[in-house]
Structures are given as C-alpha cells and as structure tokens.
Design a protein around this nucleic acid. Structure first.
Lengths: 142, 142
DNA sequence: AATCTACATTATAACAATTCTAAACTGTTG
DNA sequence: CAACAGTTTAGAATTGTTATAATGTAGATT
C-alpha cells in the first residue's frame, strides 16, 4: 500500500467500507516504510499510542482478519501462544529470536531458494515458509 | 524409540519415573512404525480409544512436555489454534494440507538443504524449519 | 517389608487469546 | 433523508493451556 492518505479509496477498492476505525488502522499499519510484525495486542497498544483513540478489541480482530483475507496482511506461525501478522505480504522468510521473541524479515539474499522435489498429486503449493530460530550463543538449543 | 515394551527402562534411562501413565503414553506414541502428528486432544482421544483408560488432561500435557524436553517429541508450528507434536524428532520438514489439515513428513530427499547466508551476531541457529502449504489444485491460494 | 520423601497425578480453577452475541451505530443506496 | 446492510462495541462465551493444592506412588532408606 502507498504512502499517506487515500486509504478511503483503497478500502473501497478492495471492497471494505471505509469506516473511521479501518482508516485509522490503515494509517497505523500501512503508512510506514518498514514492514512490521505484530500481535493483536501490539497493534491495539500501537493504535492507542500513535493515534490516541481506542478501537475495540473485537474490531481490531475483525479488521486484521479482513485485511488478511484481502491479502494485505500475512499471518506467520511461530508458536501457538498467539498469532503474529506481517505487513510484508510478499513471499519471504523469517528469523525468530527465541530470547527476545522478535521476528526479523529475511530478504531474498539471506536464504537461497528452497528446492522442493516432492510433489503431492492433485495438490499445488500455496506457500513455502522457512523459519530460522536463533538463540543466544551461550545457551543450548531449545 | 524401539518396538514393543521396555519403555520402563527407557523412561528410567532418560530420567523420568516410569509411572503407569507414562508407560501407557509411550505405548501409544512410540510403539508404531510410522511417525505420527497429533494435537493434545488427538492424543487424549487415542489413549482412551487404544488403551481403554483415561489419563488426566493435565498429565497428558505434562508428559508430552516432558517427552518434548527430553527430545522424544517435537513441536511443529502450523497455526496458532493449537500445538502440533511429531514423534519424528529428526530434523525434517513438513507439507501441510490446507484442505484436510493433515501434516506430512518430508524426508531428506524431498527438500534440498536450506542455505542460510545471513547470520545474526551473538546468535546461533537453533533450528531451520520449512513448511510447505499445499492445497487442492482447483482452489486459489489461501 | 515399613517408612520416608521427592516427584506425579488429578480435578478443578485460573488464565490468555480469540470468537461470539446482540444491541447500538453508521456508510451507502435509492 | 429514510432504510438497510454492514460495522462497531462491550461483554460474555469458548478454547487451548497452565497453575494449584490435595492425594497418590516410585524408589531409596532403614
């Protein structure tokens, strides 16, 4: 999504009514250069920090899922505690820091393309995700 | 783990007291040729089906985590709904069938080794997991 | 074998993340 | 601007998981 403003048009284009809350969420999510990774709670917190208004938790869930369904957010599976989302919807991989619980994007140069030799009849690959878990050097493997 | 019986010795060896419940769980989990993937609920159900006795939910959680800590079970991240575990603890990757929600093991020959070129200072790689999501050919990407 | 003690099991309560509900509200269409 | 369908909301409900505290048990000590 582009810089600054017309999220109203954007939302209409993708078939979502441009409500106050959705526009605000667009501003928080897509009005930035760097992609970012968040949990729902991170996002709620960010909304009340950056804008100073609160959006109901249910709405945040609804809207995040709406954006995800429309392909503007990607869910990332790291563990089963909570859902992580990513504003970078392109095919890319992640490092996950087990100490700080931080997600780090890989760019194309960080990991060579994964070569999959098996294929499952009648099925097609919908995504290939690599998750590289890293941890502090002095502590043993998880 | 080997075929049939002496899970009592096995448990003692790895430093877990061989209780009735743990031995039963070993039989359900490790007394089979094919590895299998399960959620805690799958396992509870399997225990009451195969043995016909129930083990308390808390104990199943405790024991699964004990086995995991000792390296006899592996947790797999697919989504955040629930935890999946795998009796195959070797380094290997997975296909995930989005239609049937089935996990399929990859063996060595299915995916070439993943070449990671970035490294994060002070951190060491604790695991590299590839998840290949597949879906029925006629339906669009998730 | 009886006793002891640390570890295990259990039912249940607590908890956190997420989804549901039903009432109030608001864009949009006509 | 009226009407309706879609949206927001607070709070309740649900789900998966972890904590608690009482009871039980394996294995060492006598």
């Amino acid at each position: 999504m582009p810089k600054n403003c017309n999220f109203i048009e954007k939302l209409r284009d993708i078939g979502l009514r441009p409500t106050k809350q959705r526009v605000k969420m667009c501003e928080v999510l897509f009005n930035r250069e760097k992609t970012f990774h968040f949990t729902i709670n991170d996002l709620v917190k960010k909304i009340s920090d950056e804008m100073n208004e609160t959006i109901s938790l249910a709405t945040v869930y609804n809207t995040v899922h709406a954006f995800q369904k429309k392909g503007y957010l990607k869910e990332i599976s790291i563990n089963s505690d909570k859902s992580y989302f990513d504003t970078n919807t392109s095919a890319h991989h992640h490092f996950y820091d087990e100490d700080t619980h931080q997600l780090i994007d890989c760019d194309e140069n960080d990991i060579d393309p994964v070569n999959i030799k098996k294929n499952i009849t009648g099925k097609k690959i919908s995504s290939v995700e690599v998750l590289v878990r890293v941890a502090s050097d002095n502590q043993t493997q998880k």
